[in-house]
Design a protein around this nucleic acid. Structure first.
Length: 606
RNA sequence: CGGGGUGUGGCCCAGCUUGGUUAGGGCGCCUGGUUCGGGACCAGGAGGUCGGCAGUUCAAAUCUGCCCACCCCGACCA
């Protein structure tokens, strides 16, 4: 696909405007570099034009994705980006998606949406076209723009409102078929991200608005990433912190204290104590021996009913609102303000506690409910209860895993310390099951003539976001350092030193040879001084740079590797062949070993 | 949606507090010349409704109001 005539270009004709100064709009390195190296330009917030080099890099990622999809037997289709909102009403997601769903009307005033994803369209296609078990299984995929009216686009293409995404949909007869498809896609994803040169992890995640059962995220490690993940080196457990389970404490925390409040909680006057910090300072106990109560409004679908909720977690923990929402079945949560809490429960926020709590639905984190005794507000200004125990001193209400898990916390599977990192969510897969097919009536007949909903899975890869993640990982102070696999071009031929005879001609000849050999090459034939060409070459990040200059008098050119800066002389005679071999080797660098990613679906992902 | 910030030639910015000549600088661009191995130099030149609208004023880039766009923090987020 990338061989032949289209694989080479003269810089003098290429629209690749570099910026010497850092654009004010950009904060992350990948965003800055994509602008500075002339890969893209902003049209509106979160919407970009991709220029020739950006387009080529995107096409490289797409090509890798297509190869890996095809390898697993998936079939490419092209689906509409403009979809009747009706379909989304039918699936129930029009309401769930809220304002992020980009709505528009046609001239007749009929409501449409710009596709953020294609479950509805695929399910609709399936219900029309699939009627027999003989037509299954099937995996369809497509690559297209997606639209999400993000409240706050940021970091360029990392969180955009229009972006390129590959999405795949598996259609199966039953759960086993779905799991097999899921495993295949997982294997494909492992190969895709490895080939792109990313340092990535697969983690368990929260299904969010898409619904369904199992879900995995593929996260490219990067400090600027918005996804926080934890993983265990010992047993392989890995999860997004939104999902990561809190380890169930094996036994009662030692923090119970010497006298332990064996006879019951002790009421202590604590003037001015409002926060956990205050309480720790006042009582000289660790924060882990305290607990705190947080008040939130929970909203439920479909009637928008609201309820005040009190969540009790240990003083040193943070509440995971997603877990809380899931425990409640709520669609939305928001912190309640102190006035609301006081009005509803009569409890002052800084001194609120579970003992004698009224007017709010109480949920207690596992850790607090497991038998330990904690210091907690007494529901009276300036008073706290020490050594209060769930079950003995108050009704814990609904007990659930509610805390946010972080690095250093014990692994929920094996107890080892978890590690943590930030990353960019580049892929996501969901074993949907029958949620969409059920809602939209996508049914097939089995060999007995019985009707069943199609078992579905969906699988996304953020193409443009993956590209940003690649740059985030592969750059230095001078510019991009492309891995061969996604570099817009592999080699730059740079003739310099006008004082030397024949550098231009030699450069032209070498360029023609490389081009003829199918090597993806740019010729920097611009009338610029050497320094400017070198700086640009570094910024563009070509994996290899061939300088045709003063060494020409010895019949040699210089071959420089962008990564590491290693420079060597090679004879002009064999240069094209040598460079070609170097490109082939470079392309092999990120090629996964045989069998990579093809492990069983429940094996650790790395 | 809440909080903060910024809008001045293609890019980065100064000028605004304290209204007052032809609105500036650097980079880039065009022409000519000298240069030519890590973003050269000289000379000449083009390019701006100062985000928009309304107001205050003899006079507005500068003051006031409204609006818009963009950025950051938060909320939100397959």
């Amino acid at each position: 696909m990338w061989g032949g005539a289209g694989a080479a270009v003269r810089m003098s004709t290429l629209l690749a405007p570099t910026l010497r100064e850092v654009p004010a709009e950009a904060e992350t390195e990948s965003h800055r570099l994509m602008l500075r190296a002339g890969l893209m330009r902003r049209l509106a917030a979160g919407i970009y034009s991709h220029l020739p080099l950006g387009q080529r890099a995107i096409a490289k990622v797409e090509a890798i994705v297509r190869q890996e999809m095809d390898r697993q037997g998936a079939q490419e289709v092209r689906l509409p980006l403009v979809q009747p909102e009706e379909l989304w009403v039918e699936s129930g997601r029009s309401a769930k998606y809220g304002e992020e769903l980009w709505r528009l009307k046609d001239r007749h005033g009929r409501p449409f949406v710009l596709a953020p994803t294609h479950e509805e369209v695929v399910t609709d296609l399936a219900r029309r076209e699939i009627s027999s078990w003989r037509q299954l299984p099937l995996i369809l995929y497509h690559v297209s723009n997606k639209y999400r009216d993000e409240p706050r686009p940021r970091a360029g293409v990392m969180r955009a409102r229009e972006f390129v995404m590959k999405d795949a949909y598996s259609l199966d007869r039953d759960r086993d078929g779905l799991l097999a498809a899921y495993a295949r896609m997982r294997a494909a994803y492992a190969r895709v991200f490895t080939r792109c040169g990313l340092d990535w992890r697969v983690v368990e995640a929260d299904p969010g608005t898409i619904g369904g059962g199992d879900t995995l995220e593929f996260v490219a490690l990067a400090d600027v990433g918005e996804a926080e993940i934890v993983w265990c080196e010992a047993c392989g457990y890995a999860a997004n912190v939104e999902r990561a389970e809190g380890a169930r404490p094996a036994e009662v925390e030692a923090a119970e204290g010497a006298d332990g409040g064996a006879a019951g909680p002790v009421r202590i006057h604590t003037p001015g104590v409002r926060t956990i910090e205050d309480l720790v300072a006042f009582a000289g106990i660790p924060a882990s021996a305290t607990s705190k109560i947080l008040f939130l409004w929970a909203e439920y679908a479909p009637d928008g009913r609201r309820e005040l909720v009190a969540a009790l977690v240990r003083g040193d923990r943070q509440l995971n609102e997603i877990k809380l929402a899931n425990a409640l079945g709520a669609v939305r949560l928001g912190m309640a303000d102190r006035a609301d809490v006081l009005a509803q429960t009569g409890a002052p926020v800084g001194s609120a506690g579970p003992v004698g709590l009224r007017g709010a639905r109480l949920l207690t984190d596992l850790e607090v409910a497991c038998g330990g005794a904690f210091a907690i507000g007494a529901n009276q200004e300036d008073w706290h209860l020490f050594w209060a125990k769930a079950g003995r001193d108050f009704d814990p209400g609904q007990v659930a895993d509610l805390r946010l898990v972080g690095a250093g916390d014990p692994c929920p599977r094996c107890g080892d310390a978890l590690r943590g990192a930030n990353g960019v969510e580049v892929g996501h897969m969901f074993a949907l099951g029958a949620v969409y097919s059920q809602a939209m009536g996508a049914l097939y007949r089995d060999d007995q003539g019985r009707s069943h909903p199609i078992e579905m899975g969906c699988y996304g890869i953020g193409i443009t976001r993956t590209l940003a993640a690649v740059i985030e990982r592969h750059h230095d102070r001078d510019g991009i350092v492309w891995p061969f696999a996604v570099a817009p071009y592999h080699v730059a031929v740079v003739p310099v030193a006008a004082g030397e005879d024949g550098t231009r001609e030699a450069g032209e000849r070498l360029y023609a040879e490389l081009r003829g050999a199918g090597v993806e090459t740019v010729l920097d034939d611009r009338d610029l001084r050497p320094g400017a060409k070198f700086k640009d070459a570094d910024l563009f990040g070509w994996p290899l740079r061939v300088t045709v200059g003063r060494t020409l008098r010895d019949g040699a050119v210089e071959l420089r590797q962008r990564r590491g800066g290693l420079t060597e002389r090679i004879q002009l005679g064999g240069a094209a062949a040598a460079i070609r071999a170097r490109v082939a080797a470079g392309l092999g660098e990120t090629e996964p070993p045989p069998g990579h990613g093809s492990q069983a679906p429940d094996a650790p992902g790395w």
